[in-house]
Simulated assay, not measured.
Amino acid sequence: MSLPYTSLHTFHLVVRFGSLKQTADYLSLTESAVSHQIKRLESQLGYALFYKNGRQLKATPRGLTLAEQLAQPFDHIDHTLLNETPNHQQRLTLYCLPSLLEPWLLPLILAFKETHPELDLIIRYHSSAPEYLDENSLRISSFLSNHTSQYRVVPLFTGKTIPVCSPLYLSHANPMGNPTSLLEANLLHDHSEHSWQTWFSQFSLALPAGQKLIYEDFHLL
């Protein structure tokens, strides 16, 4: 079976960017054209390459395996062609949490740009990071201490989870002087229940069952 180079390269980029739109912008194509190439490749292969996770596009296990096999040869081709292009502006993409960007990273960006004028610096939201990061990408995010990764992980900060409360809510709620008293409070969850589950487990308590208010991101709180 002969697979088209163009569709394979497009697939490789969609996995890298995690977005049809970013891939289309990179290739100067429409999203429809990129989607058509992916569907044609899926038809030839006989299996799905992507699935939707909310608003994010994720590679299926078989798609991720194919992407990993394609990554090195395509990156080598791209690197070779870019090095042969005169006056090429190099690019560094940072995927970062807003909570780290504002107080820590932004003050450093100006100094970084002054010492590296040859780089185009692109900053994206951390959740848009593709499953596969190329050599010109960095992801600055939060991880548990037992997190494992196929990439090199450099610890920057240590974190601690503590409960906080609105003064207005506290003025109307029952007294909350110990962890057990929080079991009756209206708990807000950032992305999942994991943080509260971990915090309560320190005191041998279980997160209460029932309806929960879960936000996709704490910036929505």
Rank of each mutant, 00 (worst) to 15 (best):
26 Y>C: 15
108 L>E: 12
160 K>R: 14
65 T>R: 01
103 P>Y: 07
42 E>N: 07
112 F>C: 06
191 H>N: 15
199 W>N: 00
76 H>I: 01
200 F>C: 04
163 P>R: 05
29 L>W: 02
158 T>S: 08
4 P>N: 15
100 L>R: 01
76 H>C: 04
219 H>P: 00
51 Y>Q: 11
16 R>L: 13
38 I>F: 04
146 N>R: 10
174 N>D: 15
35 S>K: 02
44 Q>T: 13
139 R>P: 07
82 L>A: 12
199 W>H: 02
4 P>K: 15
103 P>M: 10
220 L>W: 08
75 D>N: 06
9 H>I: 02
9 H>Y: 13
95 Y>M: 07
24 A>R: 01
48 A>D: 13
165 C>G: 04
44 Q>M: 15
107 P>K: 10
100 L>M: 10
137 S>M: 12
7 S>Y: 10
51 Y>A: 12
1 M>P: 10
160 K>P: 02
131 E>N: 05
84 E>G: 01
138 L>D: 11
128 S>A: 10
89 Q>T: 09
140 I>S: 09
159 G>I: 06
96 C>S: 07
63 G>W: 00
53 N>I: 07
96 C>Y: 00
25 D>V: 10
68 E>S: 02
102 E>Q: 10
176 M>E: 08
166 S>N: 14
150 Q>Y: 06
221 L>Q: 08
83 N>H: 15
99 S>T: 11
155 P>Q: 07
19 S>T: 00
123 I>P: 11
37 Q>Y: 04
173 A>Y: 07
163 P>F: 08
115 T>N: 05
81 L>S: 02
31 E>K: 05
200 F>A: 03
162 I>H: 07
4 P>I: 05
214 I>F: 00
74 F>T: 01
60 T>L: 08
216 E>S: 13
119 L>R: 04
97 L>T: 02
78 D>I: 10
80 T>R: 11
153 V>A: 03
3 L>T: 05
55 R>V: 00
51 Y>I: 03
18 G>F: 03
215 Y>V: 04
91 R>C: 08
196 W>Q: 10
81 L>N: 07
26 Y>L: 12
165 C>A: 14
72 Q>S: 11
57 L>N: 00
178 N>R: 08
146 N>Q: 14
88 H>G: 05
180 T>D: 03
128 S>H: 14
59 A>K: 05
148 T>S: 09
8 L>Q: 04
68 E>I: 09
187 L>T: 00
94 L>G: 03
159 G>F: 09
124 R>K: 14
184 E>V: 02
171 S>Q: 09
21 K>Y: 11
70 L>T: 00
139 R>G: 09
38 I>W: 00
141 S>A: 14
52 K>W: 05
205 L>A: 03
38 I>S: 01
7 S>W: 13
66 L>G: 02
45 L>C: 06
68 E>F: 01
174 N>Y: 14
66 L>P: 00
102 E>F: 07
165 C>R: 13
187 L>D: 00
86 P>F: 06
195 S>H: 06
198 T>Q: 11
23 T>C: 14
99 S>D: 11
123 I>R: 09
5 Y>K: 15
2 S>W: 13
42 E>V: 03
10 T>N: 12
